[in-house]
Protein backbone atom coordinates (compact mmCIF):
# COMPACT_ATOMS: atom_id res chain seq x y z
CA UNK A 1 0.00 0.00 0.00
CA UNK A 2 1.40 3.31 -1.00
CA UNK A 3 0.35 6.50 0.69
CA UNK A 4 -2.43 6.71 -1.84
CA UNK A 5 -3.57 3.15 -2.08
CA UNK A 6 -6.48 2.07 0.05
CA UNK A 7 -6.49 -1.50 -1.20
CA UNK A 8 -4.91 -4.62 0.07
CA UNK A 9 -2.87 -6.55 -2.43
CA UNK A 10 -5.49 -9.22 -2.57
CA UNK A 11 -8.44 -6.89 -2.88
CA UNK A 12 -8.22 -6.29 -6.55
CA UNK A 13 -4.52 -5.48 -6.83
CA UNK A 14 -4.53 -7.39 -10.06
CA UNK A 15 -1.00 -6.45 -11.00
CA UNK A 16 0.25 -7.89 -7.76
CA UNK A 17 -1.44 -11.19 -8.06
CA UNK A 18 -1.24 -11.70 -11.76
CA UNK A 19 -4.95 -11.10 -12.05
CA UNK A 20 -5.92 -14.29 -10.24
CA UNK A 21 -9.16 -14.67 -8.37
CA UNK A 22 -8.79 -12.34 -5.46
CA UNK A 23 -10.53 -11.80 -2.20
CA UNK A 24 -13.18 -9.76 -3.88
CA UNK A 25 -13.45 -11.54 -7.18
CA UNK A 26 -16.87 -11.19 -8.65
CA UNK A 27 -19.34 -14.03 -8.45
CA UNK A 28 -20.69 -13.18 -11.86
CA UNK A 29 -17.45 -14.32 -13.38
CA UNK A 30 -16.18 -17.34 -11.58
CA UNK A 31 -13.03 -19.09 -12.72
CA UNK A 32 -13.28 -20.27 -16.31
CA UNK A 33 -15.09 -23.56 -16.52
CA UNK A 34 -16.54 -23.33 -13.05
CA UNK A 35 -20.05 -24.56 -12.50
CA UNK A 36 -22.54 -21.84 -11.68
CA UNK A 37 -23.00 -21.38 -7.97
CA UNK A 38 -26.39 -20.73 -6.53
CA UNK A 39 -25.48 -20.26 -2.95
CA UNK A 40 -26.64 -17.73 -0.48
CA UNK A 41 -25.90 -19.57 2.71
CA UNK A 42 -23.30 -22.05 1.60
CA UNK A 43 -25.42 -25.15 1.23
CA UNK A 44 -25.04 -25.53 -2.48
CA UNK A 45 -21.50 -24.66 -3.32
CA UNK A 46 -20.81 -28.03 -4.79
CA UNK A 47 -18.15 -28.66 -7.39
CA UNK A 48 -20.65 -30.23 -9.69
CA UNK A 49 -20.05 -33.83 -8.80
CA UNK A 50 -20.40 -33.80 -5.07
CA UNK A 51 -22.17 -31.61 -2.58
CA UNK A 52 -19.52 -30.55 -0.12
CA UNK A 53 -20.41 -28.23 2.69
CA UNK A 54 -17.97 -25.92 4.39
CA UNK A 55 -17.88 -28.37 7.29
CA UNK A 56 -16.84 -31.14 4.95
CA UNK A 57 -13.96 -29.22 3.41
CA UNK A 58 -12.81 -27.35 6.51
CA UNK A 59 -10.26 -29.96 7.66
CA UNK A 60 -8.60 -29.85 4.23
CA UNK A 61 -8.54 -26.03 4.12
CA UNK A 62 -7.07 -25.93 7.60
CA UNK A 63 -4.45 -28.53 6.68
CA UNK A 64 -3.35 -26.52 3.63
CA UNK A 65 -3.16 -23.29 5.65
CA UNK A 66 -1.11 -25.03 8.32
CA UNK A 67 1.49 -25.81 5.68
CA UNK A 68 1.42 -22.29 4.21
CA UNK A 69 2.22 -20.71 7.58
CA UNK A 70 3.47 -23.71 9.56
CA UNK A 71 4.38 -24.19 13.19
CA UNK A 72 8.10 -24.88 13.18
CA UNK A 73 11.45 -24.12 14.79
CA UNK A 74 10.93 -20.41 14.02
CA UNK A 75 7.84 -20.31 16.18
CA UNK A 76 4.08 -20.74 16.05
CA UNK A 77 2.05 -20.69 12.87
CA UNK A 78 -1.61 -20.41 11.96
CA UNK A 79 -2.45 -23.49 13.98
CA UNK A 80 -1.69 -21.68 17.22
CA UNK A 81 -3.32 -18.55 15.80
CA UNK A 82 -6.64 -20.36 15.49
CA UNK A 83 -6.96 -20.83 11.75
CA UNK A 84 -10.01 -23.04 12.13
CA UNK A 85 -12.07 -20.40 13.95
CA UNK A 86 -10.75 -17.68 11.68
CA UNK A 87 -11.67 -19.43 8.43
CA UNK A 88 -15.15 -20.27 9.63
CA UNK A 89 -15.83 -16.65 10.53
CA UNK A 90 -14.18 -15.15 7.49
CA UNK A 91 -15.92 -17.42 5.00
CA UNK A 92 -19.30 -16.84 6.61
CA UNK A 93 -19.04 -13.15 5.69
CA UNK A 94 -21.38 -12.51 2.72
CA UNK A 95 -18.68 -10.35 1.15
CA UNK A 96 -16.52 -13.47 0.88
CA UNK A 97 -19.06 -15.43 -1.11
CA UNK A 98 -16.95 -15.80 -4.23
CA UNK A 99 -13.87 -16.68 -2.21
CA UNK A 100 -15.77 -19.24 -0.26
CA UNK A 101 -17.01 -21.15 -3.26
CA UNK A 102 -13.57 -21.06 -4.83
CA UNK A 103 -11.86 -22.39 -1.72
CA UNK A 104 -14.49 -25.10 -1.43
CA UNK A 105 -13.88 -26.24 -4.98
CA UNK A 106 -10.14 -26.19 -4.40
CA UNK A 107 -10.37 -28.14 -1.17
CA UNK A 108 -12.47 -30.87 -2.76
CA UNK A 109 -9.95 -31.21 -5.55
CA UNK A 110 -6.98 -31.34 -3.16
CA UNK A 111 -8.62 -33.96 -0.96
CA UNK A 112 -9.41 -36.14 -3.93
CA UNK A 113 -6.03 -35.70 -5.58
CA UNK A 114 -4.36 -36.95 -2.40
CA UNK A 115 -6.68 -39.93 -2.19
CA UNK A 116 -6.04 -40.85 -5.81
CA UNK A 117 -2.31 -40.54 -5.55
CA UNK A 118 -1.59 -41.84 -2.05
CA UNK A 119 -4.71 -43.70 -1.06
CA UNK A 120 -5.11 -41.24 1.83
CA UNK A 121 -6.97 -37.98 2.29
CA UNK A 122 -4.87 -34.79 2.24
CA UNK A 123 -5.23 -34.34 6.00
CA UNK A 124 -3.69 -37.78 6.54
CA UNK A 125 -0.56 -37.16 4.48
CA UNK A 126 2.78 -36.41 6.07
CA UNK A 127 4.15 -32.88 5.77
CA UNK A 128 6.46 -33.68 2.87
CA UNK A 129 3.64 -35.16 0.79
CA UNK A 130 1.36 -32.23 1.63
CA UNK A 131 4.07 -29.78 0.60
CA UNK A 132 4.70 -31.67 -2.64
CA UNK A 133 1.05 -31.33 -3.62
CA UNK A 134 0.95 -27.64 -2.72
CA UNK A 135 4.11 -27.10 -4.77
CA UNK A 136 2.44 -28.61 -7.80
CA UNK A 137 -0.54 -26.29 -7.36
CA UNK A 138 1.76 -23.27 -7.08
CA UNK A 139 3.75 -24.29 -10.13
CA UNK A 140 0.60 -24.92 -12.14
CA UNK A 141 1.63 -28.52 -12.82
CA UNK A 142 -1.92 -29.68 -12.30
CA UNK A 143 -4.93 -28.53 -14.29
CA UNK A 144 -8.03 -28.82 -12.14
CA UNK A 145 -11.38 -27.81 -13.52
CA UNK A 146 -13.29 -24.99 -11.89
CA UNK A 147 -10.51 -23.03 -10.22
CA UNK A 148 -7.01 -21.72 -10.89
CA UNK A 149 -4.56 -23.62 -8.68
CA UNK A 150 -2.20 -20.71 -8.03
CA UNK A 151 -5.11 -18.41 -7.19
CA UNK A 152 -6.45 -21.01 -4.76
CA UNK A 153 -3.11 -21.18 -2.93
CA UNK A 154 -2.70 -17.41 -2.86
CA UNK A 155 -6.17 -16.84 -1.50
CA UNK A 156 -5.51 -19.36 1.27
CA UNK A 157 -2.17 -17.67 1.86
CA UNK A 158 -3.92 -14.33 2.21
CA UNK A 159 -6.45 -15.81 4.61
CA UNK A 160 -3.64 -17.48 6.57
CA UNK A 161 -1.80 -14.19 6.94
CA UNK A 162 -5.04 -12.56 8.06
CA UNK A 163 -5.45 -15.31 10.65
CA UNK A 164 -1.84 -14.89 11.76
CA UNK A 165 -1.46 -11.10 11.77
CA UNK A 166 -5.00 -9.70 11.86
CA UNK A 167 -6.88 -8.23 14.76
CA UNK A 168 -7.74 -11.04 17.22
CA UNK A 169 -11.38 -9.91 17.21
CA UNK A 170 -11.83 -11.87 13.99
CA UNK A 171 -11.00 -15.16 15.65
CA UNK A 172 -7.37 -15.52 14.55
CA UNK A 173 -4.09 -14.29 16.02
CA UNK A 174 -4.98 -15.95 19.31
CA UNK A 175 -3.12 -14.41 22.23
CA UNK A 176 -1.48 -12.20 19.58
CA UNK A 177 0.86 -15.04 18.59
CA UNK A 178 1.35 -13.52 15.16
CA UNK A 179 2.08 -10.03 16.45
CA UNK A 180 4.48 -11.50 19.00
CA UNK A 181 6.23 -13.40 16.21
CA UNK A 182 6.94 -10.18 14.31
CA UNK A 183 8.25 -8.22 17.27
CA UNK A 184 5.49 -7.75 19.76
CA UNK A 185 3.64 -4.76 18.40
CA UNK A 186 -0.09 -4.36 19.02
CA UNK A 187 -1.70 -3.07 15.90
CA UNK A 188 -5.29 -2.63 16.96
CA UNK A 189 -6.51 0.81 18.02
CA UNK A 190 -5.67 3.22 20.80
CA UNK A 191 -1.93 3.27 20.61
CA UNK A 192 -1.81 6.82 19.21
Amino acid sequence: MSAFDRRSLLLGGATLLGGGALLSSCPKDPEPGAPATKDAGGGDDGDGDGQMSLDDVMPTLVAVCERLVPSDDLGPGVKEAGIDTYLRKALADPRMKAIKSMTQRGAVWVARAAKKEHGKWFVELDDAAKDALITRLVKGEVKPKGFTPLAFVRVLLALSLEAFLGDPRHGGNKDQVGWKFVGGITWSGRQG
Partner: peptide, 29 residues
Amino acid sequence: HDNPIHRAERLAIEGGGTLWGRALKERIK
Protein backbone atom coordinates in the same frame (compact mmCIF):
# COMPACT_ATOMS: atom_id res chain seq x y z
CA HIS B 1 2.80 1.17 5.23
CA ASP B 2 2.95 -0.66 8.57
CA ASN B 3 -0.21 -2.70 8.14
CA PRO B 4 1.15 -6.13 9.12
CA ILE B 5 -0.95 -8.35 6.86
CA HIS B 6 -0.19 -6.09 3.94
CA ARG B 7 3.54 -6.22 4.63
CA ALA B 8 3.58 -9.99 4.99
CA GLU B 9 1.47 -10.49 1.89
CA ARG B 10 3.81 -8.37 -0.14
CA LEU B 11 6.77 -10.45 1.00
CA ALA B 12 4.91 -13.55 -0.12
CA ILE B 13 4.37 -12.42 -3.67
CA GLU B 14 7.04 -9.86 -4.39
CA GLY B 15 9.01 -10.56 -7.52
CA GLY B 16 6.17 -12.54 -9.05
CA GLY B 17 6.72 -15.80 -7.15
CA THR B 18 4.74 -17.28 -4.30
CA LEU B 19 6.66 -17.75 -1.08
CA TRP B 20 5.10 -19.94 1.62
CA GLY B 21 5.96 -22.26 4.47
CA ARG B 22 9.07 -21.85 6.58
CA ALA B 23 10.78 -19.69 3.94
CA LEU B 24 7.96 -17.15 4.15
CA LYS B 25 8.00 -17.08 7.94
CA GLU B 26 11.73 -16.51 7.92
CA ARG B 27 11.36 -13.63 5.50
CA ILE B 28 8.51 -12.09 7.49
CA LYS B 29 10.44 -12.27 10.74
